[in-house]
Design a protein around this nucleic acid. Structure first.
Length: 680
RNA sequence: GGCGAGUUAGCUCAGCUGGUCAGAGCGCAUGAUUCAUAAUCAUGAGGUCCUGAGUUCAAGUCUCAGACUCGCUACCA
């Protein structure tokens, strides 16, 4: 695809405004998009980078309800925090908008209306649960009740987390709304669906044939979806928070958040410039979506189908989705507070935006999930930024001040070695550009750092501190070159570390430079006076890192404690002795165990209850391997009403204990007992 | 269960269409050096390329089977 493009449109996934942003967001989406955009800007390309907060959807309404505030208050709070974090970290969007903006509301509404008018949607009516008190329809997971299978009173409408069974809300005993606590009723409701299946042919050709160059994870994921067959997808929801469906008789319905969010890219562009159509509707615009892997299907399948259905819009040229970043070996989690929040980082490491930008780019999850560790953060800062980059710039400037009083000395005749060194700069430019254009930012960053390495090596090999006594003329040339390398370095690192680049530019008192200046050897003319040298980076000591590790450890312990207390449920209502006596629990011996085909959790156990041998299906496959169960004595509720699971009649229940993390363990007699022994 | 991605030196990763592909950075060891934030430069040690089988004159690189990690999706007391 060697198309030539006149302009670029860069989009970055809209962060969901129900929490601040953390290093995972930065590493996966915003640093890559920022590097890409800064590079294009430096090249003088016509490029705009748009983003904004995604402010609709159910989770925000629930969070608002929980805190007793309005959804608008929630999104106002987080929009402000997120926006500031991006600004603080130099993520230079041309506009950071939000989906609650009036422009967006109109754009999304018009978009829907056009598709509606042209008959691009399917209408379907279905029955769903409705909360009359909260005046809202309830998704299955927002209905709570008693699990018909294990008696857990906190089972959700889609699943009982205690016994693992999947439920439908109809099965729950005593169902009630998680929102208001009232008993939900069934109501029929109508929704609009985008028939993705109709776009399958177009998507196949566009992705599978025309974009084989997409990253393997993205391409593979798309292929998986397409091969699996696409289904119509609902684009509306029963909710009072969002953009109203612009159709008569659609009161109480809003656009599904995933329908309106990507349109947010269009709205943001509209807010940015009256010329927005140039970016969205010209074939010579190159659009690139930066996202995380969880968004692949929406940006590669759903949104393109929407754009196609609407007509007139261009499609993304590439969707360089990244994998996920872990933190110290565990998944980053907002709810478990397992994250390094950007706003907190800046409080603890003021002025060190570029250190984090550097580490996150050098260790970006470009091809697979990666791990962020504070030890690695420290090592990269101390061994790479301080030792290689900061040190080189410092040596060049300090030597210039020392020998030439801060004035750039004239360049004399070049030696072969000088020429060789300078030619390496041109190579670096080449490698840098092609890596960035191919979304290989880790590799590109290495090339940028290589410029500093070239400088360090040059100084070590030419040894101006020795020559100053014997051949001061030669030293002039050497330092001139070292200073040119320094200026080049500021250009090379700008997309990655804009703050540091600006500091270097300020120290050499020149610039601003453009990408074309990279490789040039006359950026600082002889006689030009440079400014004072100041350190670009400082070492990070062990105790600072230890504090961060301690903080995470505290989070871990707080989570464990919260988890434990959370799972200690209230005592259930009392039962009579007679009722208890009705339960027939026996010591039984497991004779055989095998995995139930096509399930993840189920094991089929053959047990000797003393009364008989029978089969019991139990959802413990994730905790026990079949072979380790055979021969074990366990407790079985033998007179539980039989139930058919996956075609197997399960007669009884293996008694299990559940620890705070949800892990199940068998209950076993302390000493060997005869099968059939009564428990009571 | 189906599907996708990943598994290469202590760590983080490159290795395109099979034949100098066994690599880079950091760490480590040794040496050199002192202009520089004890920072630099050179050299070196380190790997059954997840496992097993197969195709081939030749396999990290292709095929099949399996293991593990992550994700999507289904089913499921």
């Amino acid at each position: 695809m060697s198309k030539t493009f006149k302009r670029y449109l860069v989009t970055s996934a809209l962060p969901y405004a129900n929490g601040p942003v953390h290093i995972g967001h930065l590493a996966g989406v915003y640093i890559p998009s920022d590097i890409y955009t800064r590079y294009l800007r430096m090249r003088g390309c016509d490029v705009i980078s748009v983003c904004g907060s995604d402010e609709h959807g159910v989770p925000i309404t629930l969070k608002a309800r929980k805190e007793g505030v309005t959804p608008q208050q929630i999104v106002d709070r987080y929009h402000a925090i997120i926006k500031k974090s991006f600004e603080d970290f130099g993520i230079a969007f041309d506009i950071y908008s939000r989906t609650s903006s009036p422009v967006h509301s109109k754009t999304a509404s018009d978009f829907f209306r056009k598709l509606y008018d042209e008959g691009k949607f399917i209408e379907k009516t279905s029955e769903q649960y409705y909360d009359e008190e909260a005046h809202t329809f309830l998704a299955d997971r927002y209905i709570v009740g008693t699990c018909p299978k294990c008696g857990n009173e906190g089972a959700y409408g889609d699943q009982c987390e205690k016994c693992g069974s999947t439920l439908s809300p109809d099965e729950l005993i005593n169902p009630h709304s998680a929102v208001s606590g009232s008993v939900p009723v069934k109501r029929t409701t109508k929704h609009w669906y985008l028939p993705l299946d109709q776009y399958e042919g177009f998507l196949r050709k566009w992705i599978l044939e025309d974009h084989k160059e997409w990253k393997p994870n993205v391409y593979g994921q798309c292929k998986s979806w397409l091969d699996g067959g696409l289904q119509p997808r609902a684009v509306s929801r029963d909710l009072d928070w969002g953009i109203p469906v612009p159709v008569e008789g659609a009161e109480g319905k809003v656009l599904y958040v995933w329908f309106d969010a990507p349109i947010g890219y269009i709205s943001a562009t509209k807010e940015l410039t009256p010329d927005w159509e140039k970016y969205w509707k010209s074939e010579d615009t190159k659009m690139v979506h930066f996202i995380g892997k969880d968004n692949i299907v929406f940006h590669c399948i759903v949104f393109p189908s929407m754009l196609k259905a609407h007509g007139g819009y261009i499609l993304p040229e590439n969707v360089p989705a990244n994998e996920f970043l872990n933190l110290e070996g565990d998944k980053i989690s907002t709810s478990r507070n397992w994250a390094v929040w950007l706003h907190e980082y800046l409080e603890e490491f003021p002025g060190k935006q570029d250190v984090l930008r550097y580490v996150l780019c050098a260790n970006a999850p470009e091809s697979k999930d990666n791990d962020f560790t504070w030890k690695d953060f420290q090592a990269r800062n101390n061994n790479e930024l301080v030792a290689i980059l900061g040190n080189f710039v410092n040596r060049a400037l300090v030597l210039t001040h020392k020998y030439f009083d801060g004035v750039v000395p004239a360049c004399g005749e070049l030696t072969d070695y000088d020429r060789q060194t300078l030619s390496e700069l041109a190579c670096a430019k080449e490698a840098l550009g092609s890596n960035i254009e191919n979304y290989r930012f880790r590799e590109a960053l290495k090339e940028a750092m290589n410029v500093a390495r070239i400088g360090n090596k040059y100084l070590a090999d030419t040894e101006p501190w020795k020559l100053i006594k014997s051949d001061p003329e030669r030293v002039k040339t050497i330092l001139n070159i070292a200073l040119q390398i320094t200026a080049n370095l500021s250009v090379a690192i700008e997309p990655f570390m804009p703050f540091t680049a600006a500091k270097i530019v300020k120290m050499v008192q020149a610039g601003p430079f453009t990408w074309d200046d990279l490789g040039r050897t006359d950026l600082l003319p002889a006689g030009h006076r440079i400014g004072q040298a100041e350190l670009l980076f400082e070492k990070i000591e062990d105790d600072v890192i230890q504090r961060q590790l301690d903080k995470l450890e505290a989070t871990k312990q707080a989570n464990a404690a919260a988890n434990a207390s959370q799972h200690i449920e209230d005592q259930k209502g009392s039962v009579s002795f007679d009722d208890f006596q009705k339960m027939d629990i026996r010591v039984s011996k497991i004779l055989a165990a095998e995995k139930v085909a096509k399930t993840k959790k189920l094991l089929k156990l053959t047990v000797d209850t003393g009364i008989d041998q029978r089969e019991i299906v139990s959802g413990i496959a994730e905790y026990y391997k079949p072979e380790e169960l055979v021969g074990k004595e366990v407790l079985v509720l033998v007179n539980l009403a039989p139930r058919e699971l996956k075609g197997i009649l399960s007669r009884g229940m293996i008694l299990m204990a559940e620890d705070p993390s949800g892990k199940l363990r068998l209950l076993r007699p302390e000493e060997s007992m005869t099968p059939g022994s009564i428990v009571g």
